[in-house]
């Protein structure tokens, strides 16, 4: 469930309008007749979303025709104040898109060839997602890599402390989290085990600050004694 899709065949064709079209596992990722027109239609059908948000998450890169149209629209709406992140499971497609110089890179960041787990380790992506960007699914890519994108959209982060500590990057935090029982959940560790400690370290106080800060958001809290 957390793997990249299997690519059994890959070729690049040319459309009637002389644009390059990637064909993955026999699926054309853009229209073989007029990729530009198709891309324009896709972005126009998502115009309301773009008018509301200057940050956009695009699922599927293909050869970037729809991304370029999104850039055009966002530039009209926001000047240079916008950001696009594209998630693409197929690194080869991304590589060829860049080699063929098809992608306008203005304010665009592409994550290609990463599993969902790897993506959700990236703090920049996490901060971007926390800002609730508009989302556009490239239909051909989304249908081809359905399991991949579903895994991405319904991802559940690991809950056990040993997995959680592996995901953190800050050394002091990583070392601190390793002190807890590896198979306990974060909630058990912070809300149950921690308040029972007899002696508190400096980091324990920071952890309790987090517990208190997040308590009202409906988290379970162990009976904390004064």
């Amino acid at each position: 469930m957390n793997n990249l899709p299997i690519i059994s065949s890959y070729e690049v064709k040319t459309s009637r309008t002389e644009q390059k079209v990637p064909v993955v596992n026999g699926v054309h990722l853009h229209s073989i007749y007029n990729p530009f027109k198709e891309a324009e239609n896709l972005i126009n059908s998502n115009l309301d979303a773009l008018k509301n948000k200057n940050e956009v998450l695009i699922l599927g890169l293909g050869f970037g025709y729809h991304v370029n149209f999104a850039i055009e629209k966002l530039t009209e709406l926001y000047g240079s104040n916008f950001k696009i992140i594209v998630i693409e499971p197929n690194h080869q497609v991304h590589h060829d898109c860049l080699s063929l110089d098809l992608l306008n890179k203005k304010n665009v960041l592409v994550y290609s060839g990463f599993t969902a787990q790897e993506l959700y380790r990236d703090l920049d992506l996490i901060h971007f997602l926390l800002r609730k960007p508009a989302m556009i699914a490239h239909p051909a890519s989304f249908n081809l890599y359905q399991m991949y994108f579903k895994t991405f959209l319904t991802f559940e982060a690991p809950t056990q402390m040993d997995d959680i500590s592996k995901l953190t990057e800050v050394r002091e935090v990583k070392n601190y989290l390793k002190n807890f029982e590896p198979h306990s959940s974060f909630v058990e560790a912070f809300y149950d085990q921690l308040p029972q400690k007899q002696e508190f370290t400096s980091m324990d106080f920071l952890a309790m600050a987090l517990v208190e800060m997040t308590k009202r958001s409906g988290e379970k809290a162990a009976g904390e004694s004064k």
């Binding site: 997602l129 500590s165 997040t214 958001s217 409906g218």
Partner: peptide
């Protein structure tokens, strides 16, 4: 950024450790 920390803590997409890490970095 309390809102961000609470979102990291409560949203299943994100590891709970990130909430703690963010708080650590902000302080």
């Amino acid at each position: 950024d309390r809102k961000e920390i609470i979102t990291l803590k409560t949203n299943k997409l994100f590891s709970d450790g990130f909430a703690f890490e963010q708080l650590f970095m902000q302080v």
